[in-house]
Write a protein that binds this DNA or RNA. Structure first.
Lengths: 254, 254
DNA sequence: GTCCCAAAGTTGTATATACAGGCTAGTACA
DNA sequence: TGTACTAGCCTGTATATACAACTTTGGGAC
């Protein structure tokens, strides 16, 4: 069965590899067609096809007369990274900071117990954090975690590693569900996120599963005037859409 | 500015045209590369590129040794349903109705012209509708359509066939982008959707492409207290996910 | 110094050619 | 009759070549 991959595909794999490994960063220059001809001993048309398809798939951007550059859109394509607001902010070249408001063991009640599929009164961890982008509050994270999945939860320093990053390391993501709502924030949310008068809140409610059971239930509030969710869809048939159709958070331009 | 389109693009447009017009039906055979060489006086590599890209974009399916065939677009139905609020409501077992508030030819300005990639002042269709679920207003649809894609737009009865359904029938969906925001509605939106005092609005802004060009730009406003977006992820590795990772509109339970 | 233009490098497209491999129908042969 | 094989068409890939258009850079004319 081992028919060798076509050479244009080998070129694509090579470049994708350098991008995922970090050897090539967003906006870095990718070898030109003629350089690939020399380096890889292929014809220019083969190099052209490889780079053109990488362009079509969003990995790189090509500018006639200038060159080929790594696009900054694809780099954070993993679903797990989408869950991590610190990476998201870092990818925009901004600085992330967070402040832990609460980190405690509680008894699950009502909506939380139902969402996590545990009995009323079961012990769960409760985390409350504010995330800042360039100093401005951008997300209020109100999260409950099933105790069994993360027994060390109270000892973690969530100002250096976000709860999302910590949880995906201790409980591999199997499935995720999210709900997006627009609401008027209550007083606490307004205060923590410095809402303007009458500003709406974009709320993402996310549940994740690992090993077939719910792990965490998070309510993520964002200021409506400074945050939006963007999604991209390419119908079946378009090559390599695995990451393109993931919904990811992106800050409003301006 | 009128530089002629590249020939491979002309070939693609020709075949896409025959498909949209119905001249070519699903599973029909598309002219082979060598036939296109004869008919269109191009080289085989040019014909190859046109057909290969149509294959990548899902318009046709190519089988080595047999030929090229029009694919049936059933696979896109998931997405089409997502775009069509009438189907969405019907799926919940509720009744859908809509009222056309505006159906006119306008000159694209500002944001609309930029979103549709047309010159300022280009003529576009403007549609404004309210959709009702069981008699309650549930979506205000504010849509602009590039005139070339749907010349019959003014004659359509959008109270019996939604704009979304009509558009996907005349311009096969190639790509979609959507942005979700939470805002405070202006007076017009409040009035048409019967907003309560201080209620937030969940806005979905969606652009779709066909044949490589933007087709339509829609702003869909929903009452924040009665609407939410739900999404579901399964990480790569689990069965093929075309429909699972599409964000779909769903009404709040309860 | 400033402006203009040419050169070099880049992508974008188009063509001619070649060979490999899949599929099918029809023919030759047992 | 039935089987095997081959000819012919199809797609898939790879190469060499050519020209066009765009961008940057540097050098020469003024």
């Amino acid at each position: 069965m081992n028919t060798a991959k076509p050479r244009y595909q080998q070129l694509k794999d090579l470049i994708i590899g350098r991008i995922s490994s970090g050897e090539l960063s967003p906006n870095d220059r990718v070898p030109s067609e003629n350089e690939l001809v020399e380096l890889m001993s292929v014809s220019r048309m083969t190099a052209n096809r490889a780079l053109r398809e990488l362009n079509d798939e969003g990995y790189v951007e090509r500018i006639a007369g200038r060159g080929t550059f790594v696009s900054d859109f694809r780099s954070q394509s993993h679903l797990l990274e989408v869950h991590n607001i610190a990476d998201e902010i870092a990818q925009r070249g901004h600085s992330h900071a967070s402040k832990v408001l609460r980190q405690s063991l509680q008894h699950a009640r009502g909506e939380v117990a139902r969402a996590l599929h545990v009995e009323q009164g079961t012990e769960v961890f409760h985390l409350l954090l504010v995330h800042f982008e360039n100093g401005a509050p951008i997300q209020l994270e109100d999260r409950h975690v099933v105790a069994g999945f993360a027994p060390e939860c109270l000892e973690q320093d969530f100002e250096s590693v976000t709860p999302s990053a910590y949880l995906t390391s201790v409980a591999p993501l199997q499935e995720a569900e999210q709900v997006v709502r627009a609401t008027l924030p209550n007083a606490a949310v307004r205060k923590h996120l410095n809402f303007e008068e009458g500003e709406a809140s974009l709320v993402v409610i996310r549940r994740t599963w690992s090993a077939g059971r719910p792990v965490t239930f998070a309510r993520l509030h964002h200021p409506g005037s400074r945050y939006e969710l963007t999604g991209h869809y390419t119908p079946p048939g378009t090559p390599r859409s695995t990451s393109a159709d993931v919904v990811q958070l992106e800050k409003l331009r301006q």
